[in-house]
């Protein structure tokens, strides 16, 4: 996999997240009943950043958790060995809340489908919204994002790689290129 271009640097990411934070509050008329849930792995630091930003301008700390979709993947019978299971941390009730799912890249939509199933096993939220840093198209499910940092048209030979400081040492969004078309569950990786 070769690097082709830098799509966003740290400052651009920060600006996008600031805008998304404002949009979330604006669209929901405040922060009441709002919760943020990051999808493992790179949705989690993004959700935390959004929580932090909302607290800065609204003074309210929105309940924020994480969800691991591994056990809900629709391809477990096709991939092997099984992926490592990571923690799901939802230490608040999602019943009747507006839950904003946060992920780094929206691609096929399969991750979001799995995350929706996972969330619903914890209760019945009033609504679920979706925030992503990058929407790269190629949807395979009828899913769209409510909040998008940047739309990036891609070919299937391209891969969007979001890097987060806590995980990867820097904040950036890279476009990579591969030799063969490989269907991917969702971006955020190779």
């Amino acid at each position: 996999m070769r690097k082709k271009a830098t799509i966003m640097d740290a400052r651009q990411i920060d600006r996008s997240l600031s805008r998304i934070a404002h949009e979330i509050v604006e669209r929901n008329h405040g922060t009441d009943n709002l919760a943020l849930v990051g999808i493992r792995s790179r949705g989690v630091p993004l959700a935390e950043t959004l929580q932090h930003k909302i607290k800065e301008f609204e003074g309210v700390e929105i309940p924020t958790g994480s969800v691991d979709i591994t056990l809900y993947r629709d391809d477990l019978s096709q991939i092997a060995p099984n992926p490592v299971v990571q923690a799901t941390e939802l230490d608040f009730e999602i019943e009747s809340k507006v839950v904003v799912l946060v992920d780094d890249v929206l691609f096929t939509g399969r991750t979001i489908r799995a995350a929706l199933d996972a969330l619903i096993d914890y209760g019945r939220p009033r609504a679920i919204e979706l925030a992503v840093l990058i929407d790269r198209g190629h949807r395979e499910f009828p899913i769209r994002a409510d909040f998008v940092g940047k739309n990036v048209p891609t070919s299937l030979l391209e891969v969007i790689k979001v890097q987060c400081r806590d995980i990867d040492g820097e904040d950036s969004v890279l476009m990579m290129e591969v030799d063969d078309v490989v269907r991917q569950y969702d971006d955020g990786g190779e």
Binding site: S41, D75, Q78, P81, V84, V182, Y185, G189
Partner: peptide, 20 residues
Amino acid sequence: GPAAPGDAGDLILPVDQQAA
């Protein structure tokens, strides 16, 4: 080891989800 790209329904794991 883990299924190589092209195998197993052409699905690969994101880099942060190491095969267990």
